[in-house]
Design a protein around this nucleic acid. Structure first.
Lengths: 110, 110
DNA sequence: TCTATACTTAAGTTATTGCTTAACTATTGA
DNA sequence: TCAATAGTTAAGCAATAACTTAAGTATAGA
């Protein structure tokens, strides 16, 4: 069973590593096997597998093993969680600016 | 001069730390001084200052020192950079699914 | 002017991460 | 059946990151 938690902490921690972001960029173009994923990266297959574990546990990547080949693909859940957190911050921040604008407009009228 | 690079690496690395995300959450409610920011956190003021440096260098936070008080606030640039990266991945991934859907529809017609 | 406040900076320690090597399992194809 | 392929897992190492302490500077208020 795939470890899918997708809590904010796991997701942002996973995205914090540059190699894992490169993996995400590759995967957004379409599903690919572990060794094909590893080839252009200058690290060992074992290291790639470890990154994939982190990505899968955070809900950013889904994998399925058929025969001896594990195929990896984007799991939209993780990206959604991250997108949502950022949107929440921006929205709170923007609402505050709006209220500030209203207050300034009011004081202009006076 | 404030170090504002806002490259993807800096931004995601900065957001990868839970304490820094708590700082961002606090700041989205409005500007606040360094020591007010530090009070609820269970780390020293020096540690908070270090986190703020990372956040400022990544373009996620802006600070201004007036007198002896440094006031911190959200810098939307950093959040935009992160949001954009995620949106790009999702969009590429979704477009691929659409093409896949078209192909399946075509093969249904045949 | 003198003291408290609000940071700032440097140095050192500890914990976490990313990586490698190496030995292993499971599957495929000749 | 036997070798090559594809991935797994554990152990250990080295770099980085987060944090602390401690000593400093600059400003505010009495």
């Amino acid at each position: 069973m795939p470890e899918k938690k997708a809590d904010i902490h796991r997701v942002f921690h996973a995205l914090g590593d540059p190699t894992r972001r490169i993996i995400m960029e590759k995967l957004s173009a379409g599903p690919i096997s572990v060794s094909h994923l590893a080839t252009p990266l200058k690290i060992t297959l074992a290291a790639v597998v470890q990154h994939l574990q982190v990505l899968e546990e955070s809900g950013l990547v889904r994998t399925e093993k058929i025969g001896r080949v594990r195929t990896c693909s984007i799991d939209p859940v993780g990206l959604l969680v991250a997108e949502q957190w950022i949107a929440d911050r921006r929205s709170t921040w923007e609402k505050r600016l709006d209220r500030l604008g209203d207050l300034l407009a009011e004081s202009d009228e006076a």
